[in-house]
Design a protein around this nucleic acid. Structure first.
Lengths: 108, 108
DNA sequence: GATAGGATCTCCAGGTACTGGAGGTTCAAG
DNA sequence: CTTGAACCTCCAGTACCTGGAGATCCTATC
């Protein structure tokens, strides 16, 4: 990785996500609260970047936040047999998205 | 066409759009108010179906309603030289969607 | 023609996922 | 040590629906 720590602004730039949205994800428990500087500024690490990237991509897929929360919970327990379930869910959604895209392209 | 007129429920089925959403589109002026039966039920025709189909597809593309409203306004004036503008907007958006899809598929 | 039950009506509250702004504080470059 | 961008909290507002209550209408069947 090319960084030791990120400010919220840098994280926002790297994930194409607004600063307020990051704070909101934290408020609703989708992102863990990061460390803070003595002054109170948020300090993020590589794991936050990975997690937020996941959230953003899942949102682009059309997953509601509750579904993303569930997927993240599964991912947090790698010894979990329901990883297959998660994969199945994601694949199903991908199929939906692809079907939709086909319809859209057919329209043009 | 295979119908003379549609109830709101039939229109909803054909456009995969909830009944309430149709009424809401009418309330905000995205769909013209349809004729009514003497009892007050809405009666739709082929043009409504076409228009709502357009709205739904545009929504799937990710257009905000205001953009759709503008595109519909352009479509309502076929003698308008800005049809090219509309086409350009739509193409740009399509490109965005395709780029997004590529990123998403790369992730899998 | 009576009736039953499914579809529709209006109105309004609630939900999701942000987004923007006010008013104040912190940080880093010079 | 100053200055200006970036950050902080809190809260109100937006976009786009979604669901429910309570009443009315429509149509198929008896």
């Amino acid at each position: 990785m090319s960084f030791a720590s990120l400010s919220i602004g840098e994280l926002a730039r790297r994930t194409v996500c607004k600063v307020q949205t990051i704070r909101w994800y934290e408020a609703i428990g989708l992102l863990p609260a990061p460390a803070r500087t003595t002054g109170g500024h948020r300090v993020y690490g590589a794991e936050h970047l990975r997690r937020l990237d996941f959230v953003r991509h899942a949102r682009e897929f059309g997953f509601p936040l509750e579904a993303i929360r569930a997927l993240l919970a599964l991912a947090d327990h790698p010894d979990n047999p329901s990883c297959e379930v998660a994969h199945a869910i994601a694949s199903a959604r991908l199929a939906e998205v692809e079907a939709k895209l086909k319809r859209l392209e057919a329209l043009r």
